Simulated assay, not measured.
Amino acid sequence: MKHQTLDQLHAVAKIESSAAYSAMTRNQRIERWAELLEQYPERCLAAFAGTEYLPLEERAGVRGEGSPIAVAFEDPVLRASGLKDDTYGEAKRFFELSDWQLHEIVCDCHAGATMKARWAAARVRATVRGNGFFAWLRQRIMY
């Protein structure tokens, strides 16, 4: 059996979604994102440059081929659950993350220009899990 993406299938057939995805909770969406990243742990992903310095409007529209967010958008389950595109702003909305949390996952100041998918998966989990008191304190100070 040959694996094809939904977009590839659309080129040769009319596709109608009959699978009804139940509403995923925030934690389920984030966990799925981490699992998708872990499927190819050595995959090199692109980081976003200086997200914390961009104006809010510009930051929301930032996207990059091969970014951790693009990996999430490649998934038909997350798209069917409401992920509309692979921009920073959409990932922030869909995964219900603060700017600080998403910055921790995708910004080049933490990983350099590229990162391994396994590193990004660990950041996804660590960012939402936090680190006890210091994560709580940072959240209170920053937002």
Rank of each mutant, 00 (worst) to 15 (best):
T51R: 05
S18A: 05
F134M: 12
W136T: 10
R29W: 11
E52P: 01
W119S: 05
T5C: 13
E65C: 06
A126L: 08
V124F: 06
R123W: 04
F94S: 02
T127M: 02
V62A: 04
E52N: 10
G132P: 01
D99S: 10
R125A: 03
A11W: 06
Q8T: 13
V124W: 03
F95A: 00
S81W: 12
S22Y: 13
Y88P: 01
R29Y: 13
L6A: 12
E38R: 15
I141Y: 15
A135L: 03
R140K: 15
F133V: 10
A121F: 03
P55D: 07
Q101C: 03
E35K: 13
N27K: 14
D86Q: 10
A113E: 08
P76H: 04
L45A: 03
G61K: 08
L54A: 13
A113T: 07
F133R: 14
T127K: 00
L36M: 09
L37M: 11
Q28V: 13
L37R: 00
P55K: 07
H103E: 15
C107I: 08
W100T: 08
G112A: 04
R63Q: 11
Y88K: 01
E96S: 06
C44D: 15
M142E: 15
M142P: 03
S98V: 09
A117F: 02
R118C: 13
W100C: 02
T25H: 09
Y88T: 07
R123L: 02
A11M: 14
I141W: 15
W33M: 09
H110K: 06
E58T: 15
R123D: 00
V71N: 02
K2M: 12
K84F: 08
F73E: 00
H3G: 05
L36G: 02
R93V: 04
F73H: 06
Q28M: 11
T5F: 14
A47C: 14
V77P: 03
I30D: 00
I141F: 15
L37C: 09
L97D: 00
V12G: 10
P68V: 14
W136G: 02
A121M: 02
H10E: 07
K2R: 14
G66P: 02
A13L: 08
N27Y: 13
E42M: 13
R129F: 07
A46T: 15
A72K: 01
R79T: 13
L54G: 07
E96V: 01
A91F: 12
L83N: 02
V12N: 09
W33F: 11
A19D: 05
R32L: 15
E31W: 05
Q39N: 04
C44Y: 12
L56I: 12
A20D: 04
W33H: 01
R140H: 13
W119L: 06
L45C: 03
I30T: 05
E52G: 10
F133L: 14
L36Q: 04
D99T: 15
L78M: 11
M1R: 10
D99Q: 12
F133I: 12
D108P: 05
N27R: 12
I141T: 11
W136L: 09
C107F: 09
G66E: 08
P76E: 11
L9M: 15
F133Q: 08
A135P: 00
H10R: 11
A19S: 06
